[in-house]
Design a protein around this nucleic acid. Structure first.
Lengths: 171, 171
DNA sequence: AGCGTAGCAGACTGATCTGTCTAGACGAGC
DNA sequence: GCTCGTCTAGACAGATCAGTCTGCTACGCT
């Protein structure tokens, strides 16, 4: 667990300042997660803006995840990590729940726009994949192939659930 | 975090006994994980024994995961949880790494036996899915559809990567 | 210049945690 | 019956944690 003292030392902020601003440690974590939520919103919006069809947007998000996995600095989803590390606190759990509901809803909406037969199911499937990538980033020292796997799996799932079907290659 | 004192109280074991047996807390956790590894090995072996083709064995493992997700008592992968909660300890990380390497190797071997075009990739993909299910079990209060999603996603991935291809349904 | 606000530095408290140590209970084997 | 090994019960030390409080500094505003 990361303690208050280390936060203070590395940030150069006085303890009193931190507590007047955020109340307590959970307040600090919650504020951090809420800001990170905003960062994620904007980042995802930028990724989505690079594509013009629901299908490519979905796959673009997973190409982005592949990039994240390729970066050794990426240590997994911060909401997952915070929830795992924190004591069971109402507000931190709520912030994590909000983020996860948002991303799952986003996947579902894009799945619906891509005319998936079962958008809710495809959204769930992609969310599982997304979570799996976060765990791999957090725990696996050797991520070789993880980035490739997450994008190719997303592609396969989207293709399987989407009416146009897999690419028109015949064996 | 769960402390030593709570362990002692709930197990009815004296503190001295625990420390003479396991040395320190990390030793206890490591011993627990190693025993749980054995439990998992046996459970997986039982699941595999129920099927007689690599494809159905793979899918059987994910049907088993679906069952686990349906059980509200299932709180996610214990290796993932332990690694997330523990301070960065060499031995706990090693035990988790061993388990994860084993399950990924198992997926890859079964993928190879199922004649997947790229067994390593399919193994990785299924491992991602498996991890995602653990995260969902740990964090999502509402798991509706998660079990269905993990099995259907595994089926889609196996079908996409396997020569016999998807079920012989034509649209 | 004077004042108020905000931030920094760090001592301090109380709670909690790991790990050690002492003292006694209990049973097995000779 | 005695001793040895193992167990329980729990006090204790030392470290670490969150959170409070005091004193000092620095800057903006009038």
């Amino acid at each position: 667990m990361v303690g208050i003292d280390r936060l203070l030392e590395e940030s150069g902020v006085a303890k009193a300042s931190l507590y007047t601003h955020f109340g307590n440690k959970d307040g600090l974590v919650r504020a951090y997660l809420e800001e990170h939520f905003e960062v994620r919103r904007e980042h995802v919006a930028q990724v989505l803006a690079r594509y013009n069809t629901p299908r490519t947007q979905l796959l673009g998000l997973f190409a982005d995840a592949e990039d994240a996995l390729a970066n050794p600095m990426f240590r997994g989803c911060r909401f997952v990590n915070a929830s795992a590390e924190a004591r069971p606190d109402e507000s931190i759990g709520a912030a994590t729940e909000a983020y996860r509901a948002w991303i799952r809803g986003l996947f579902t909406d894009l799945a619906k726009a891509a005319k998936a037969k079962n958008p809710k199911r495809l959204g769930r499937q992609l969310a599982l994949l997304y979570d799996g990538a976060a765990v791999a980033a957090r725990l696996d020292v050797d991520r070789t192939g993880a980035g490739d796997a997450v994008l190719s799996a997303a592609t396969a799932l989207v293709d399987a659930a989407t009416p146009q079907g897999p690419k028109p290659t015949r064996r």
